[in-house]
């Protein structure tokens, strides 16, 4: 679970950053200044990274036994600029709760 969560967080962060680069820099350059070079280079890379994000989110959802709706929401959250970071925080909050790891006495 911990390793799957780390994998998900890493790829979610990468996808979120690349998506923001695409939206904040690439799209204004292409549609405002008629210079599509950023979109043409980052765009396919983002698509490929998003596939990895989908695989990581699916793997995590299986390990955490999420319902289907939550899995789909987490997957879709990766497509929205800036929201992906919030989704990553929410997912981490669900899964990395320290209260779940309270020790218990062995006997008694």
């Amino acid at each position: 679970m911990g390793a799957a969560l780390t994998r998900y967080r890493v790829i979610a962060w990468i996808v979120g950053v690349v998506l923001i680069l695409l939206v904040v820099i690439g799209m204004p350059l292409k549609y405002g200044f008629d210079n599509p070079v950023v979109v043409e280079t980052i765009g396919p890379a983002h698509g490929f990274l998003y596939m990895i994000y989908l695989v990581a989110a699916f793997d995590l959802s299986r390990r955490a036994d999420w319902p289907l709706k939550r899995m789909l929401l987490v997957m879709l959250a990766g497509t929205v600029p800036f929201v992906s970071f919030y989704a990553e925080r929410r997912v981490t909050g669900w899964l990395a709760r320290p209260a779940d790891r309270t020790p218990e006495p062995v006997a008694g």
Partner: peptide, 27 residues
């Protein structure tokens, strides 16, 4: 989900100390 056992049920102080040690190791 295992329910943590109540700590006051442990009468033996050595056992309580050992349990405290084990829970520290676990934490």
């Amino acid at each position: 989900a295992r329910v943590p056992a109540a700590s006051e049920a442990v009468e033996d102080t050595d056992l309580a100390a050992y349990n405290h040690y084990l829970s520290w190791l676990n934490a």
